[in-house]
């Protein structure tokens, strides 16, 4: 069973989101999703731009799969995990911490609040 820590929010597209305060939110890929993908060999980010909810924030590549990750709500990307460029497998090794993807900013917390809780996400992936 995959690790789904409390205190994070989750999306249907398997990202976790963490409230950092100051209207900033950190995002990453859930342990469940990285297990499904296998070793991640590349991460690509369009850059520090504004995104509408549902737009592609970047893409992840394993050997036989490629998945995009999406803006969970309207937001602006303010930080990118540059460590992933050299070591994308950090996402596999440490998905909730060193393997984070981006930090986004939004003034409207309602999008974040409507995401799934750990319990709801556990049910969603059927584990």
């Amino acid at each position: 069973m995959s690790d789904i820590p409390e205190g994070f929010r989750y999306t249907d597209s398997h990202e976790w989101v963490k409230d950092l305060g100051n209207s900033e939110y950190m995002m990453g890929l859930t342990a469940y999703a990285q297990e499904q993908m296998g070793e991640i060999v590349m991460v690509e980010f369009p850059g520090m731009l504004d995104f509408n909810s549902g737009e592609i924030l970047g893409s992840l590549e394993a050997v036989k799969t490629a998945e995009d990750f999406y803006a969970p709500f309207d937001c602006k990307v303010v930080r990118i995990n540059e460590g992933l460029e050299d070591e994308p497998a950090l996402i596999n090794e440490n998905p909730y911490d060193k393997g984070w993807l981006v930090v986004v900013k939004t003034d409207d917390p309602s999008g974040f609040n409507s995401l799934k809780s750990a319990e709801e996400y556990t049910e969603f992936i059927g584990e």
Partner: peptide, 9 residues
């Protein structure tokens, strides 16, 4: 680099 290709992407 198969993730570029049609059978995956």
């Amino acid at each position: 680099l198969q993730t570029r290709e049609q059978h995956i992407r």
